Computed example of a mutant assay.
Amino acid sequence: MARKPGTRAEFVLFDVFYEDGSQRSNRRVPSSVLGGLDGDEPARAVVEAQDQDIAEKSGMPAIPIKSLRRATK
């Protein structure tokens, strides 16, 4: 039996470039926080919060973000 389509959160994927030269691809940011006058700038706060959670769990310090770019498919 086929599943009923549920409400699905829409995400935008970003490539994140860090100050140490490393890169992480396809970081998910909810599309609800993007747009408006700020454009993609709110994505930085979301990714920084994700990085902070990862840093706390791993015991390693978070690396500062140099830039963000929407991922291309």
Rank of each mutant, 00 (worst) to 15 (best):
T7G: 12
F14W: 02
D40Q: 11
A9V: 08
S31A: 08
L37R: 14
S25L: 13
Q50M: 11
E56Y: 03
E10D: 11
G39H: 05
A45L: 13
D20F: 09
S67I: 07
G6Y: 07
F14V: 02
D53K: 15
A62T: 05
E56D: 14
A9Y: 02
L68T: 06
P64I: 11
A49W: 07
G6F: 04
A62Y: 01
L13C: 02
P61Q: 03
G39M: 11
S32V: 14
G59T: 05
G59Q: 03
E19I: 11
L37N: 11
M60L: 13
R8W: 07
G35W: 06
Q23G: 08
Q23T: 13
A71V: 10
P61E: 00
L37G: 12
G35E: 07
G21S: 14
G35Y: 05
G36E: 04
D51H: 07
P5A: 15
R24Y: 02
T72M: 10
R70F: 06
I63T: 10
K4E: 10
R44V: 10
E56Q: 13
F11D: 00
A2G: 12
E56H: 07
N26Q: 13
A55Q: 04
A45T: 11
R24T: 11
K73R: 13
F17I: 07
G35R: 03
T72A: 15
A55E: 02
G21H: 09
V47H: 00
F17S: 06
R27I: 05
R24N: 12
E41F: 12
S58G: 09
V46E: 03
Y18W: 10
R70E: 08
D53P: 08
S25M: 10
V46H: 03
G21E: 06
V47D: 00
T7Y: 09
R44F: 05
K4N: 13
V33C: 02
R3G: 13
D15P: 07
M60Y: 05
I63W: 00
M1D: 14
E10S: 04
R24G: 03
Y18P: 00
D38E: 15
E56P: 01
F17L: 08
A43H: 00
I63F: 01
Y18H: 09
S22M: 14
Q23V: 15
P42R: 01
L37D: 09
K4Q: 15
P64R: 12
S22Q: 09
D38N: 13
F17Q: 06
L13K: 01
S22Y: 10
F11A: 02
D51W: 00
M1N: 13
D40H: 03
S22G: 11
L68K: 02
A49P: 05
R3M: 13
V33E: 00
A2D: 14
P42W: 01
S25Q: 15
V33Q: 01
A9F: 02
A43E: 01
R24H: 15
G59C: 07
R8Q: 07
P64D: 06
L13Y: 10
R70T: 01
I65G: 02
P64M: 07
K73F: 13
V29Y: 00
D20L: 11
R69P: 08
